[in-house]
Amino acid sequence: MDQVFEGTPTAEIQLDGHRVTRGHVSNDWGSKLQWVVRRDGKDVATVPARMEATFEHDDKTAGKYEIVLQHFKYVNYRKDAKGDYTESRFIDISNVVSYTI
């Protein structure tokens, strides 16, 4: 019996200055939860989000920053030759917040 995951996880995140706070994750699958920080459209950081509901990215490099909450979506354990998942992946589960430095 493979694990079955119920529902689709969602959460709302809010920005206060450069500090982002997440609300409750509904339909939480229990897999890895992470913040993803993008600067000018490119991923620049991933940070575990399970333990802390708030997060502030400390990089002050100029650019447009976007932050979103992601959850690992397990589809199956298939991986390519490099060991990367071919179907399972992280998915965005929140709104995106942004600020500019």
Partner: peptide, 19 residues
């Protein structure tokens, strides 16, 4: 039997920790 540390990090450990 292709489980790796990735499965531990992304799925198994968090799932156990949560439950």
């Amino acid at each position: 039997l292709n489980n790796t540390h990735k499965d531990y990090e992304y799925l198994l450990c968090p799932q156990f920790d949560q439950a």
